[in-house]
Amino acid sequence: MSANVAGIDIGNGHLKMALYKKGEARLVSARLPRNLVNDGVIIDHQAMSRFIKKVKQEHHINASACALVLPDSFSFFRHVSLPAMTEDQLELNLPYEFRDYISGDAKSYFYDYAVKETIYNDAGVPEKIELFAAAVPKSTISEYAGILRRAGLKLKVVLPREMAYVSLLKDYINRNPLCFNQEFCIINIGNLITCIDIYKGSTHVASKVLEFGCHDIDTAVAKVKNIDPFIANSYVQSNYEDVLSLPESMAVYNRISVEIMKVINFYNFSNPDSNLQDIYFCGSGAECSQLTDTIDKQTDKKTYSIDTLAPPSVAGSDSLAACTLALAMAMGL
């Protein structure tokens, strides 16, 4: 496949890359070397560059540029309501909307926004604007650009997770126009965290990050088997000695499920007009049927794999669950 721009998602456990062109995709999920990323922080930039370059070569990823999902630990995303103003005024005011979230000099951050809605008064004059706004340290962008440049990739686009899914949802709605007003709950079960994002159509509505993920399963298995969690992950991936059915593993599934349902129940309580019916699983944890089955049993919502939302030619791909964000980034270009 020939595509100039690759979607990239660098997680805590895996590097995910995606190429997308004319409905066809190539997806790659490669396990990161031990201790290369710790709590979202890339420990060795040179080693990460070499690893990305190696994965590109092994999987024949010929892209010269990339679109990157911003790490949750370094980016801030907000829904913002402001009086109607010019672009210059907005550029001046936007940093103040993040004053309770960022540390240090506000000028050391990049800010960007997308207009959700412009509200007009009875005379047809703009009165208020609803925005999606994001902030990220300039140093973070510089570091990632350097890592990717050494790997042979020019950083072209960066987006927070919340906005990355929009391209995937727009594509699905284009193929299913009657779903333009449907509510979607996407649950991305990652290595260290589980991210819950709710959309109405392709418009982001709410999100929550839980400090639970696949690493908790690895840790539980490691304690039972008396092995290192990094080694335990290989047991989990292959379900060696049926470790996914251990009582300790089941306890982790239940804990994650309970926390997810708390979030969804709170959303329903806070939004009494909501008609949220559908949950879609992605992330590496979505590949663990024992975990997704446990969540399914604890909710009255319908649950699906992310294949349901993906382009038909991509649905069923082995790495789709893990590579969903990378694919969404590639689809948006």
Rank of each mutant, 00 (worst) to 15 (best):
E58V: 08
H59T: 07
H59A: 01
I61C: 03
S64E: 12
S64A: 11
C66I: 09
A67G: 12
A67C: 11
L68T: 06
P71R: 01
S73A: 14
S73N: 14
F76V: 10
F76E: 12
R78P: 00
H79Y: 06
S81V: 13
P83I: 08
T86E: 14
E87L: 11
E91S: 14
L94K: 01
L94R: 03
Y96M: 15
E97D: 04
E97N: 02
F98H: 01
R99W: 02
R99K: 15
D100V: 00
S103H: 07
G104L: 09
K107H: 14
Y109N: 03
D112N: 14
Y113N: 14
V115T: 15
V115S: 05
E117C: 04
I119P: 04
I119C: 00
Y120L: 12
G124Q: 13
G124W: 11
G124R: 10
E127D: 15
K128M: 07
E130S: 13
L131M: 12
L131R: 05
A133I: 03
P137Y: 14
P137M: 12
K138P: 08
I141H: 08
I141V: 15
Y144M: 09
G146I: 05
I147T: 05
R149D: 15
K154M: 13
K154H: 14
L155W: 11
K156N: 13
V157M: 13
V158E: 07
L159M: 14
E162M: 04
E162C: 03
S167Q: 10
S167M: 07
L169Q: 00
K170M: 13
K170A: 10
D171H: 10
N174W: 02
R175P: 03
N176S: 13
Q182S: 09
Q182E: 15
C185Q: 08
I186G: 01
G190E: 01
I193T: 15
T194S: 05
D197P: 01
I198V: 11
G201H: 03
T203F: 09
